[in-house]
């Protein structure tokens, strides 16, 4: 986590505080874990932790791509619809070409739509909110056109056994999430594309003046984001064995919540995969813990809303100077 560490002159205590100010999500996560461990004996068990990781991984994979796009200073509302399309193609095409080509085409559909989103944003100069809001509506239309508004069933149920690989309590899905998060954290911190993504989101004028190709980075990040949405959709289709045309509805909103909760700045230039992992896990722990306590699911929704506003207020109070 050295990347996020803040090198300020001052005592170790100050630097710890400074780090916490910029990474308050871990405080949130620790608090939620403490509260639920205390409240439920089933919470801090190996099995349940495995559950939390698997449940969180789906939003988590979406959140990785969203983080890339957000650090770049943009937003992608279309991930839920892309997820549904990839899931439908991966299942629907199996009859014609077999499992892996179908999965591959599902992935490619995500990459293509991401490339389209990014190109539209870069070429038109429209706000990505508008472009991907259009995408959210239209891509869902594509899903329905393809599936004829029916849930598609997988022809051979061995497909659903593909993700049934465990490393201790950790499912393949969770492993994929962590592997992708680590990989893209490396991309963000160690590659030219990653660092320039920050530069563009942070100060687009300075980046442009320094000769950075702003458009190319945006196109790449939208492509990454949608491709990961397709990965998520395919994993979901494997888990469920079906592809619902309405799969992933309003998941884009949950994804944005997870990323913002983690501390990545909506305006761009600031954030990391570590933060996003924190946000995703906090969200997953909250959902899981509240369910373990048998609280009705409205509590979960209300707590989420409240926590999000709280995180925003906290951010404003604590990091006031950094956010002007």
């Amino acid at each position: 986590m050295s990347h996020a560490t803040d090198i300020r002159a001052g005592s170790p205590l100050q630097s710890v505080l400074g780090w916490l100010l910029r990474n308050h999500i871990w405080v949130f996560l620790a608090l939620t874990i403490i509260v639920f461990s205390w409240a439920s004996p089933y919470f801090l068990t190996v099995n349940n932790i495995g559950n939390i990781l698997t449940q969180g991984a789906f939003i988590g994979i979406l959140a990785i791509g969203m983080t890339m796009v957000m650090i770049n200073g943009e937003i992608d509302l279309s991930v839920g619809a892309v997820l549904a399309l990839a899931s439908a193609l991966a299942i629907g095409l199996q009859d014609h070409m077999g499992v892996w080509p179908a999965v591959f085409l599902g992935l490619m559909s995500g990459a293509a739509l991401g490339f389209l989103n990014g190109t539209l944003v870069a070429l038109s100069g429209m706000h990505s909110f508008i472009v991907t809001l259009g995408g959210l509506i239209g891509i869902r239309g594509l899903v329905f056109v393809y599936s004829g508004e029916n849930a598609l069933m997988v022809p051979d149920f061995s497909y659903t056994e593909i993700p049934e690989v465990y490393l201790g309590p950790i499912s393949l899905t969770a492993m994929i999430f962590f592997a992708l998060a680590l990989f893209f954290q490396w991309v963000l911190s160690s590659t030219r594309h990653g660092r320039e993504t920050y530069a563009v989101g942070d100060n687009i004028e300075a980046a442009h003046d320094a000769g950075i190709n702003v458009k190319r980075h945006k196109i790449i990040n939208f492509t990454i984001c949608s491709t990961l949405a397709a990965v998520c959709g395919i994993l979901l289709s494997m888990r469920l064995g079906t592809a619902e045309p309405n799969a992933g509805r309003i998941w884009e909103l949950w994804t944005i919540i997870a990323v913002v909760l983690g501390g990545t700045r909506l305006q761009g230039g600031f954030g990391s995969m570590w933060m996003t992992i924190g946000g995703v896990l906090t969200l997953a722990v909250l959902r899981n813990g509240l369910r373990l306590l048998n609280t009705p699911n409205y509590v979960e929704l209300m707590v989420m809303g409240a926590v999000l506003v709280l995180a925003l207020v906290l951010d404003k109070v604590l990091n006031h100077k950094g956010y002007t």
Partner: peptide
């Protein structure tokens, strides 16, 4: 955007409540 998104979630909970 975030405030009204949070409100979206909160109100959905309120509906179920």
């Amino acid at each position: 955007l975030i405030v009204t998104l949070a409100m979206l979630s909160f109100l959905q909970g309120l509906v179920l409540l």
